[in-house]
Write a protein that binds this DNA or RNA. Structure first.
Lengths: 239, 239
DNA sequence: TTAATAGTGTCTATAAGACATTATATG
DNA sequence: CATATAATGTCTTATAGACACTATTAA
């Protein structure tokens, strides 16, 4: 391809979208925004993943763009943020050939202060059911959300990923509960504790969680932002 | 964002690149192309991952674009092809803000007929050393190749991925060898065979591989294009 | 003292690792 | 028959699963 050919190709619309997960009321939730009702917009009034066009003047990289959008919507600065993949094609956006770069984030919803933002009618958490969310979504966001859920569930089987759904200090029971919510099945206490404590994942914070019963030791992650990989998946047996 | 805002954003250059792996001479190799020597080009004469601009007239989706480029370079039609991720930013391409959607493919090199293509000086297989390839690469392709190697090695630990490096029929010893090449360490025969045969991955083809010693049963994959996930990683111990 | 949850210990089942043994082809 | 590699079997070890048991707080 010669240098002049660069201009011969029409450039696709380029966006960044983020799938933001949290655990609320013992359920996995995803953050959605409602598109403006303006009939000139695509998918007016429908719910969608938060995101939008890359601003080549402000965003130095795709990840910086995702972090900016996450900060704008939730006020959170340094969560767990990982790229999910990209979706692109001729028909997914009525405005033309488009490609979106998708990230996913996990955060403790207690620390979130939702900001509606300029071109959003509404913003809110929606519970995840079996395969997705109980709402029609704009663009191909249903498919993208499905892929994000699959990635989250699959990584929960063999990594420390669900820990990022919790606040900085948490008990082992709370961590176990986060796994159970994500995996949507019970997890056995004894092997769970052995497993977590056998890898270099958490350290005692020195505090205790008190409540109606025996107080529990509070832990924190030893290194934030990284994943610990377990040598086996949870519950390998299929019965 | 209002409808008219769509045009206010400058659109990044959009490309698709492919990391194509094979096993040759007992080593993992990657396919690279040499950029033209034309001084008007970026990175003239340097080696790079095969790829190029999305053609919004011909390519209906990003994956279709990747398949087309793979077919153009290697003549291969239905290999294992998976998205690796996307890289985008202001400085990775001297021509401007750019984003590339990266796929990776595994194929048996025996079936490949390399095609140099119009704007390529040279094309060839390069052995993978510890972290990458023994050549300076254009753009951020060193980083991308590193991520692809990491993905390949990591998935080889707990999936059937390396099977796609082999031709349709293969012996269990050949499959074991593919794992050893990818993981860059020996794999024990007995647990390897138990493991492979205990999941619904391969079936006997009915043929045998003959040679200097006892003939070996030839197997083929039961379902092509999918990955089987093992409940444990290989060699979980760290010693 | 009771309720409730935290945390530990013991036994069993599964599968990997080590390694020896048997099987079957070629020359 | 010698050689080489395929394929299997046995013993050991590590860890998950099941489940009972103990510990420690509040009310």
């Amino acid at each position: 391809m010669s240098a002049s050919d660069t201009l011969d190709f029409s450039r696709p619309l380029t966006t960044v979208d983020i799938v933001i997960f949290t655990v609320k009321d013992d359920r996995l939730h995803v953050l959605l925004v409602q598109r403006p009702n303006d009939a000139r917009e695509s998918f007016p009034g429908q719910w969608a993943l938060p995101g939008g066009f890359v601003d080549t003047d402000r965003d130095n990289t795709l990840k910086a763009c995702a972090l900016r959008k996450l900060q704008e919507k939730t006020g959170i600065n340094a969560p767990y943020l990982e790229q999910l993949g990209s979706w692109g094609g001729a028909t997914r956006d009525p405005r033309g050939w488009s490609a979106t770069h998708v990230y996913y984030a996990l955060l403790p919803h207690e620390q979130v202060r939702l900001q509606r933002g300029a071109n959003t009618r509404e913003i809110g958490w929606f519970p995840i059911t079996e395969q997705g969310v109980d709402k029609e979504l704009a663009f191909d966001h249903r498919e993208i959300l499905g892929a994000a859920i699959e990635r989250l569930r699959s990584k929960a089987e063999y990594t420390s990923l669900p820990a990022y759904l919790l606040p900085e200090e948490f008990t082992l029971s709370e961590l176990q509960h986060a796994y159970e919510v994500v995996l949507d099945r019970p997890v056995k206490k004894s092997p769970f504790r052995t497993r977590i404590l056998s890898v270099d994942l958490v350290e005692e914070s020195g505090n205790m969680r008190t409540g109606v019963s025996r107080p529990a030791v509070l832990y924190r992650l030893k290194s934030s932002g990284t994943l610990t990989i377990f040598p086996r998946t949870f519950s390998p047996r299929s019965d």
